[in-house]
Design a protein around this nucleic acid. Structure first.
Lengths: 153, 153
DNA sequence: ATCAATTATATTGCGTACAATATGAATGAT
DNA sequence: ATCATTCATATTGTACGCAATATAATTGAT
């Protein structure tokens, strides 16, 4: 039986059996969906997430932003520099601990919140919210599972 | 009430109210999880997805790969060139229609399937499969919704 | 007080993603 | 047959995302 492939029901490599592929595809599609909506605000999707975090609590260190968004300085540093160049955030060394950099909002960054209020509604569009709450909870549980290093089960 | 922010329960901009953020975070975490597992095979995660598709059906055009993975030539062309350079796939103009490029597997690419069989199990690790089927279905429905242009509901 | 270990951020290099554009091949109306 | 249109892929430019490494500040053991 050389070259025989497992029966469809048992083949672990079928694309449609992967949990991760729909996540991957959904994230790409969402990015494409957010792009045109966020562009008038001068934001990319990860930049929008940073703004969401800062609108909740500010200033914050690069590290606490990363902990919230599951990103590290390799991603955040250049992103935050672009946002600083765009006039949305400020980056200042923490006088208490010179290793830390505090990210705060500029007036322009604070003002942008009003323009962003319509974004969730625009993204939701005519789509029904049915199942979205469960979906969000399901994915959140997955994130918690994946984020816990060495978590079993 | 100038400057007043909506009550927490009503604020549409709270990070924890976003459906998209858990998806985004989960995809990033999964990428980090797959990285070390796929590295010995010489694959990145999107390259692994391409291999999954080709192991199912081969050869395929760039366009049909993109339709299956929700990616366009801007992403696939350089990715496939790297996979060609790595000796995993072949890229040949379709003689029937010179616009198309057929992507096939090399012997090495076909042989890699045996090494990849352990990947799903390794990724699943000790994690319980509970809820994963529902989650996959939930995300798949979301993908179908997002992929349908102008879909309502 | 000293210095090894730790912590927080930055940098480098590589590989995606995608919008916008370009190029060349097939199609179709006339 | 001609040529505008459409189609399939490639290219360019910008912005992530991450592993690996670097740098500077703080902590902690002695």
């Amino acid at each position: 039986m050389t070259g025989t492939v497992a029966a469809p029901g048992d083949d672990p490599l079928l694309l449609d059996r992967q949990v991760c592929f729909p996540l991957y595809a959904a994230t790409n599609l969402l990015n494409r969906l957010y792009g045109p909506v966020l562009k008038p605000l001068g934001l990319t999707y990860p930049q929008y997430l940073v703004m969401l975090v800062l609108w909740e609590d500010e200033p914050q260190t690069v590290g606490s932003l990363g902990a919230r968004l599951y990103l590290d300085s390799g991603t955040l540093t250049p992103l935050l520099k672009r946002m600083e160049a765009a006039g949305l955030v400020s980056r200042t060394r923490d006088a208490e601990d010179e290793r830390r950099v505090l990210i705060g909002l500029t007036e322009q960054g604070r003002a942008l919140r009003a323009d962003a209020l319509h974004v969730p509604e625009t993204i939701a569009g005519g789509r029904s919210p049915e199942g979205l709450d469960e979906l969000r909870e399901g994915v959140r549980k997955l994130v918690a599972m994946l984020a816990a290093p060495g978590a079993e089960g």
